[in-house]
Design a protein around this nucleic acid. Sequence first.
DNA 1: GGATGTGAATGCATTCACAGCA
DNA 2: TGCTGTGAATGCATTCACATCC
Lengths: 218, 218
Amino acid sequence: MKFEDIPTPAVYRLSFYLRQLEAFQKGDKHTISSKQLGDALGYTDAQVRKDLAYFGQFGHPGIGYRVEELISQLRKILGTDKVWNVLLVGAGNLGRALMAYHGFLRKGFRLAAVFDADPSKVGQEFGELKIESMDRLAAVAGEEKIKLAIMSVPADAAQAVADKLVAAGIRGIMNFAPVSVSVPADVSVQGVDLAVQLEQLSFKMSLAGAEVQMESGK
Amino acid sequence: MKFEDIPTPAVYRLSFYLRQLEAFQKGDKHTISSKQLGDALGYTDAQVRKDLAYFGQFGHPGIGYRVEELISQLRKILGTDKVWNVLLVGAGNLGRALMAYHGFLRKGFRLAAVFDADPSKVGQEFGELKIESMDRLAAVAGEEKIKLAIMSVPADAAQAVADKLVAAGIRGIMNFAPVSVSVPADVSVQGVDLAVQLEQLSFKMSLAGAEVQMESGK
DNA sequence: GGATGTGAATGCATTCACAGCA
DNA sequence: TGCTGTGAATGCATTCACATCC
């Protein structure tokens, strides 16, 4: 079975299994059943087993899964057993908050360079990072073979920046701008839009007992 | 048909339809077909029509959808035709970036109050917002009837803060901490975890031609 | 006993394809 | 003609239930 055939939602849950396992590890738990893992995350035990089984046989019948073992397997699958260099475009409020966040490295991601279009920001330093001008982007990405980028730029700049990133060899983009960007099929985009998340909450909270207006009898 | 019966992914896409329609509106487009809307977002035209049809009959055969009309319908459905008051817990780097972001209001959300456990931060002002102490939380939430909260606190504080929020009457939580929090069934949580998003990108980029190791013949 | 891994069955979501309307 | 709305058909993902192994 190929990775490509594995259900997208299963891959997504893998990240949550990993996160939860790391929490169990901190709590000095060395072995865990699909039921325990599922309960902690709101999934069924069958779901957990099936998801993991897509990728191999990691469990031990009668015992469960060994926490350390499964963590390292999941990291290997997700590709975070090695450190990825990541570049950041956009050093506004959000961008600077990301620069100050030191949790990335522990998760396998290293902020390697930061770029901004605003000349007054270029040259500013934050810890080890110095903001560089946009026209350095392609060169830096090429030299350091960077494949991942985080984009925290205004909505109206997003498509142009995405194009630049793709041209510079970037293959995965995390997009904080509240617009859809178009990229070639071999480039992945993960969007993070706070408004979208809040809207989903808003919807769920308007749910209590409401019915859709519809012609009767349906 | 009840809201509850509508597929979760369809509700999620609603937010993207709204966002894209707002972009079309800026571009002075007043009418749009399910095909055009779908193409802009990577969905099929049938998907768009079916999603919208769950909520009512908004289209005009032979014409398409009127942009302004559909925007206001979607806002009503998502509950963002009115302004929600939102409280923020945690005024660290990310929290302060959120405070500085003025795009919320345009989307129907107003940051009404900010809280932090660190006494040295309490009292600091950012624009109209003053950071308050955690023990003011229940009172403020009650007085202003706030139902939504954004939580940008460290992982190890997240569960305790979530409990406080629930006790204060909060019904929807956007959680930036990289842990799962447990809440009663009538409270919704939307998690936003950067590491998870980056892992998904990492996985997709490790895809190129890879196969899962498995006993042969499968 | 206690747990996994996995075909088979079920349940959802998406897509097809077309009647019907402007 | 052009496009929506929608049953019916298809295709995915989840859950069941059990053989299997420690």
